[in-house]
């Protein structure tokens, strides 16, 4: 499972302040820290820090890529901001995200095609998040079909089946796992998968335990990546262990360190 480091987000006070004051230091420190801890991508989200999201995203991209060689994941519902970010990315980036809604898919997949970007597709429509796996898979198929129609290779699409907190949407858990399994049967090559990992533990008490337990269970169902806290050492250790158990990495006594140091 590739970790898309979640920390550069205007929801956090230090990042919000950095964006407002155009101070690159906190952004670059978090970029380097997440890279050192084993993240594979850096999520960049302007959040509610400033009203002008377009220049803010552009600035975030510029300062983050000065500090880290990781690919970026541009996280916004404002597609103008994403486009502005993509224009200054030095390497192909990821767009986070698009729901299975026609006009949004039109905009996002066009951007993806133009900028050779990867796309996170959400298994939801105008009607919101489906209750069962079947509807999630149907929406995933719509994402796959549109992705392909716009000339974006399907293996550059990451489908997020959408996770709900364990304390409110407990019945969604098994549906998400079933969706992850079935997504891999939708096409050849199949799309990739992702989740917003911390959703599973929103509002609960033992967040990290829920996060990492969910992560390894989802990996067994085919989860390829997650937007998560790369600095959660126990999570990274659990992911490294699951990769060994799933025969994705070759075992050695120091396998956790190897996984953690993969960016060094």
């Amino acid at each position: 499972m590739i970790i898309i480091g979640e920390r550069i987000n205007g929801m956090f006070r230090d990042i919000a302040k950095a964006i407002r004051e155009k101070d690159p230091k906190p952004v670059q420190e978090w970029a380097q820290k997440q890279e050192a801890m084993g993240a594979g991508y850096l999520d960049l989200n302007v959040g509610p820090a400033v009203p002008e999201r377009v220049p803010a995203m552009k600035w975030l991209v510029e300062v983050a890529q000065e500090a880290s060689k990781l690919p970026l994941c541009l996280d916004s519902t404002d597609y103008d901001a994403i486009e502005a970010g993509l224009e200054v990315c030095k390497q192909p980036a990821m767009i986070n995200s698009v729901p299975a809604i026609a006009d949004k898919m039109d905009r996002v997949f066009t951007l993806a095609q133009k900028f050779d970007a990867e796309v996170i597709g959400l298994a939801m429509s105008e009607e919101g998040i489906p209750k069962d796996a079947e509807s999630r898979v149907a929406l995933s198929m719509e994402l796959v079909a549109n992705c392909d129609a716009y000339g974006v290779p399907v293996d550059r699409l990451y489908i997020d089946p959408l996770v709900l907190p364990a304390n409110v949407g407990q019945d969604h858990g098994p549906e998400v796992f079933e969706t992850l399994r079935q997504i891999k049967l939708l096409s050849d090559p199949p799309p990739k998968t992702t989740v917003g990992l911390s959703n599973i533990s929103q509002g609960t008490k033992n967040r990290e335990l829920l996060n990492r337990t969910f992560a390894v269970m989802a990996m067994a169902c085919g989860l390829d990546s997650a937007i998560a806290d790369a600095c959660d050492e126990e999570l990274v250790a659990a992911v490294a262990t699951a990769r060994v158990i799933l025969n994705m990495d070759i075992y050695c006594d120091s396998y956790v360190d190897v996984f953690r140091n993969q960016n060094l």
Binding site: I250, Y251, C252, S254, D257, V258
Partner: peptide, 10 residues
């Protein structure tokens, strides 16, 4: 032994 090969390199 591939595990030892890897560990030794580490």
């Amino acid at each position: 032994d591939i595990n030892i090969a890897k560990q030794l390199n580490i």
